[in-house]
Design a protein around this nucleic acid. Structure first.
Lengths: 192, 192
DNA sequence: GTCTATATCTCGATAGAC
DNA sequence: GTCTATCGAGATATAGAC
């Protein structure tokens, strides 16, 4: 069930995960920032921190899957859409004081080798993004294997650029990665 | 000073950071795995966990900076070197049971917005890698601005591919990212 | 320099009143 | 469903014997 309290816990946790990851975020900090009594968290998430984290990863992942079509739709061609995607990501990152990058990357690296249920949640999100991107680019005229390659390449370049940008407080990695991906799109002939 | 005990602590901590990051690694776990008494850690690192982490980040970063020339030197051309770089990274990652990817990426994301001294340490490492890669590629015949662009693009693609590969237990992201970067190298004409 | 014991704090989680 | 009090275990860090 989606009560207001439950949603507030999910949103607050997602925000804290983007900023400081899974291990860096305590249950106490979550309930404090969500202005929620302690017991409510365990009422809504009986599985504790692991269940809460898995739900946060999946819901945040589903939200962010909508960004690709939202940015690419108005673009005249895919190369322009790709460049715009990285530009907007950088703009948002800088405005958030180098805080708001990928909702699941930090968690994904933290848990990949030590928490199997959470690792699967992050894998499912990446698979969702790849499937959604592949379908979208296919519908815009790319052959399906090419669409898949470009989607994965774009996600890799974006995730890596986020790391360097946050560490160095600089937009340069996002600009360069955006150019690199955009060039790949420009080099692929549309099927239509 | 570089005593054996001190080095063992540094190496063990680096290993644990690659596997589970900064917040996921406890002091107790470090001294247990390094077979070192508890007090020795605070004798060699009076600044505690933060000082130890900063030293681990910088020394591991300096070690990994040597990998690029080691892989690119035997390659007949830069595009081949880039492809080989990603191939070897993937081979090592899979052999380590999806554990051994980037020595500082997890830490970099964890601390970027919450621990300024450590954030600066990760920034310094990325800057070192960029400077070393730019110089190497310049010496192999690329114009310096091009060398810098390609170095940053390669690091971004590699870091992002590591995230997807570890989360999905798959080499596909590394293969695709390697192809993408290699194509960029092939597209740049050497200056010599 | 090495090692043990321990202080202090915060963690995730539970119990139970309301 | 909401909220408080508290548990036991773990964390980082310190004190001091050797």
């Amino acid at each position: 069930m989606a009560t207001p309290t439950r949603n507030r816990i999910l949103e607050t946790t997602a925000e804290l995960f983007r900023k400081q990851g899974y291990n860096g975020t305590g249950i106490k900090q979550i309930v404090d920032q969500a202005r929620t009594p302690f017991g409510s968290l365990y009422h809504h998430f009986p599985g504790g921190k692991t269940q809460l984290a898995a739900e946060v990863v999946r819901t945040a992942g589903a939200m962010y899957a909508l960004l690709l079509p939202a940015v690419f739709d108005p673009a005249p061609d895919l190369a322009t859409g790709a460049r715009e995607f990285f530009r907007l990501a950088g703009e948002h990152l800088e405005e958030s004081n180098w805080l708001d990058a990928c909702p699941i990357a930090t968690v994904a690296l933290e848990v990949a080798s030590v928490n199997e249920p959470l690792r699967e949640a992050t894998q499912d999100v990446f698979d969702l993004w790849i499937a959604a991107g592949t379908q979208y680019l296919s519908e815009r005229g790319l052959a399906e294997p090419v669409a898949r390659r470009l989607t994965i390449g774009m996600i890799c370049a974006l995730e890596g650029a986020f790391i360097l940008a946050r560490a160095g407080r600089s937009l340069e990695p996002l600009q360069i990665a955006g150019d690199l991906v955009s060039a790949q799109f420009a080099a692929e002939p549309a099927r239509l």
